[in-house]
Amino acid sequence: MNNATTYDYITELLNKGTREDGRENLEYRALSIKPGTMPNAEGSAEVNLGFTRVLAGVKVVLGEPMQDRPNEGNLAMSAELLPLAAAHFEPGPPSPEAIELARVVDRGIRAANIVDLPKLFITEEKVWDVYVDLYVLNYDGNLFDACTMAATTALKSARMPKYENDAVIREGSLGKLPTKGLLSSCTFGSVAGHIILDTNANEESFADARLTIANDETVVRAMQKGLGGGFTPKEVSDMLDITFEKSKEIRNAINKSIGE
């Protein structure tokens, strides 16, 4: 629906201080977080943010240590914009958008040390590799925040396989993947001169600039500015304040979903 009529409609609403679904500028859509929806995976979580729906799957498998980090396990993040999730998503190798999405989520999770990688060391030749796959099942904007929530929740609720007598044990009584802290992100869009939180697909298609701020309780862990436009230093500073305020709700929702 990327056309002039939709743009005029969205602009008119924003000028009146509202949005397509009646939200305020800095309001999130209805959020639900369900961990453990795919029990074959060591960890999983489905996030519904309005009509955006993403699934994160975590697999923990035997791997080898990286040369530059010989004493810890590895983390790999990837994102799939499934062609069934939107009419304009095409099958094929990951698009630049999918790669950016995975890398931004990865940076936050890594910087916040969500996965306790040193605890994934087994021997000098063997460590655990943690794969996080982000599956977009329906696209209606703001994949960054939905995917960060899904990845964090899936990792926090993941089980830890055992390595005994040269075999990996994935069933039976298992502990939890070693994790620390809690990460979420807030993504802002600059649409028709207004800064709004949690853009839907229509709003996102007209955004001039985008800023994702990923933080835990105390500090900012990752940021990414996207799209052609920019923000003033004052705007960035305001968005940081809003993020620390808003992210409490998200972290509470994640904690509640995993029973902590």
Binding site: M38, N40, G57, K59, V61, P91
Partner: peptide, 18 residues
């Protein structure tokens, strides 16, 4: 038609994407 399996679909190792 595209049929594909997620890399986290099985109880065993991580599969290939796509």
């Amino acid at each position: 038609c595209r049929y594909a399996m997620s890399p986290f679909s099985s109880l065993e190792d991580h599969g290939r994407t796509g």
